[in-house]
Nucleic acid binder design. Structure first.
Lengths: 159, 159
DNA sequence: TTAGTCAATTCAAAAAGTGAAGTGACTTCT
DNA sequence: AGAAGTCACTTCACTTTTTGAATTGACTAA
């Protein structure tokens, strides 16, 4: 099975990976959250090739993660902006950032998060909505649904 | 600049992307969090090629995200397990899963999260550690550090 | 002995990514 | 008015990565 089959997986992590799980797409998402809107800026700030950038932007637009908005008629110009679907990836990018800050950096973080509501620079984290306690890998257990478990049993027994 | 230069970026999101930001690595991470430990199981459950799987496992081991643990001397066998660094990616995988559940799925989620502390199936979310309120893209603002801002200005003005 | 398991490696073909150059619709400078 | 510059791409030749099938090698179980 190839990368192009990922969107058809039952697992939503596989499906999400297929949409945004590659190096350059994640870098584009970073830029979008930092406020970058134009082709040339993405190009310089990510230092990716223009070929790849236009491919990825097209893909993200098709998926509804970003939208093109015209900001000038003559010459015809437009900018790229996050849709609600795209904005909702914030948690993923922040989680990745915190992990990178913690495990891959020696210096201070290059990007801080400010909470507009309270005005503080913060390091957001995940909590359990029921008991309100902080949550991590150690206190979570994955429960696989019946149909998905069956599907997995089948492939494990396969040739 | 190419993919291989990502680890040298100042930005920790770029660095994190370089380590775990690709489709197959994310799928391997999913499996690790679901409890998969052995080569053949990864192979069947992700349906990736064995060549790529062994490459990725080697890379993840080198990076310290997973470790190989022997579980049998004869025949020599070992399993792959998450290190602390790997376990700390939980938030990223969960964030990706929630996003996939919300935007890419029609049916019920194939994997639920149970909080061991309170015993409930939950959808964890991010909060501001200072004021305790739920946080998302709309109420966050990115603050770019002085040195990183300078670096970015430089590339924007570049040829 | 033969078949089977596990954890890979090898190899050729196909797909994806890279970097440089080019295009076209404009605007600004002189 | 002509030349140079900007922005948003596309094209193309080349390199790297991925794919999928086959093979290896160390063992075990029938």
């Amino acid at each position: 099975m190839s990368r192009s089959d990922l969107p058809s997986h039952t697992c939503t992590i596989a499906r999400a990976s297929a949409q945004v799980g590659d190096e350059w797409t994640l870098l584009i998402m970073r830029e979008l959250f930092l406020g970058t809107r134009r082709f040339d800026d993405f190009l310089r700030l990510t230092s990716m090739s223009s070929h790849l950038l236009s491919q990825r932007l097209r893909k993200l637009e098709t998926q509804g993660v970003i939208r093109r908005e015209p900001y000038s008629e003559r010459p015809p110009r437009h900018e790229y902006r996050l849709t609600e679907k795209g904005l909702d990836l914030w948690t993923v990018i922040i989680a990745l950032k915190q992990w990178g800050d913690r495990w891959l950096s020696t210096e201070d973080t290059p990007v801080q998060i400010m909470h507009k509501v309270c005005g503080n620079v913060v390091r957001p984290h995940m909590i359990c909505p029921d008991c309100g306690e902080r949550m991590g890998a150690h206190d979570a257990e994955a429960k696989i649904s019946e149909p998905f478990q069956m599907e997995r049993q089948a492939v494990r027994r396969a040739p």
